[in-house]
């Protein structure tokens, strides 16, 4: 009896949860569907759901009209580059804070975090003028620099919390067994640090890919990543829903897939370890 009640309850919960899940996901689903419609079908009233002539024409048009691939590459280079650069700077810092903590380590960590609290608009003017004078406006390298700096505190923090979980005794044991610092790093630490580093990389690529303040303000046609390129659809000409959908689908697909893999790390990274 008790069992049948709980099964019934489970079924009701299932229906309810799926309905809400699909409702929340619906705008994304609708965008993906619309990207395969003709422009006429995209605004059809009543809306067409699945029974339309599927076409990939929009994807070709978006590429032809505005060289979509170039903006896609800009996004790749900017998010990948800033993550890599951030990692190179952050790994040694997080490493030494986790394994050779000093009195002021905590203060340094907190201070790094406080730089993240700075509202970007507070430094928009100087950064814009510096970029203009240094010739960095609308360049990929300029954006790589800015995104590295704004995400550096998160990278250091995430790595720190992961490194902190590696037990120090293992290092000591390795040292006792006569391992050199080099082999200690290669054979003992790296294998244990890799999962944490992978999650950090994933989360930072996502954050950099979607960053939409500096990318919009510091780029024009040349170095614009997808965030800024998509914004050009805000002043459209003629029918454009299907093309907007195609451009959007391609812009969010890679990060959606990455995001689903990193959902656990997301909590930890975005709360700076405050919720695990």
């Amino acid at each position: 009896m008790a069992r049948s009640v709980s099964t019934q309850r489970k079924l009701i919960t299932t229906v309810f949860a799926w309905a809400i899940g699909i409702a929340i996901f619906f705008p994304i689903l609708w965008t993906i569907l619309t990207s395969f419609k003709t422009e006429a079908a995209a605004i059809a009233d009543p809306p067409v759901w699945f029974n339309f002539d599927w076409t990939v024409e929009n994807y070709a048009t978006v590429q032809e009209r505005s060289n979509y691939f170039r903006h896609f590459m800009n996004s790749m280079i900017i998010s990948g580059g800033s993550t890599l650069l951030g990692l190179i700077i952050a790994v040694p810092a997080a490493w030494s804070m986790a394994f050779v903590p000093a009195k002021r380590t905590k203060d340094v960590l907190m201070w790094m975090l406080s730089t993240k609290m700075l509202p970007p608009v507070g430094v928009l003017v100087p950064i814009y003028l510096l970029f203009r004078d240094l010739g960095l406006l609308d360049t990929r390298i300029g954006l790589v620099i800015v995104l590295t700096l704004i995400n550096l505190p998160i990278i250091v923090w995430m790595l720190y919390t992961y490194f902190k979980e590696i037990p120090g005794e293992i290092l000591e044991a390795a040292r006792m067994d006569g391992a050199s610092l080099r082999s200690e790093i290669i054979h003992v630490l790296t294998p244990m640090a890799i999962p944490g580093m992978a999650s950090t990389v994933l989360l930072n690529i996502i954050l950099a890919w979607n960053e939409a303040f500096w990318t919009l303000n510091l780029t024009a046609a040349k170095a614009a990543p997808l965030t800024a390129f998509i914004a050009s659809y805000s002043s459209p000409e003629g029918l454009f829903y299907a093309k907007l959908s195609a451009a959007s689908t391609m812009a969010i697909a890679p990060i959606l897939i990455m995001g689903w893999f990193s959902q656990k790390q997301l909590v930890r990274g975005l709360t700076f370890g405050a919720v695990k």
Binding site: G21, P27, I206, N210, S234, I252, Q263
Partner: peptide
């Protein structure tokens, strides 16, 4: 499905909502 919107870049979600 529920966490997906978080990964959509702000310009895309705003334009999709605005237009479609």
């Amino acid at each position: 499905l529920v966490i997906a919107p978080f990964f959509v870049m702000p310009t895309v979600s705003a334009l999709v909502w605005k237009n479609m």
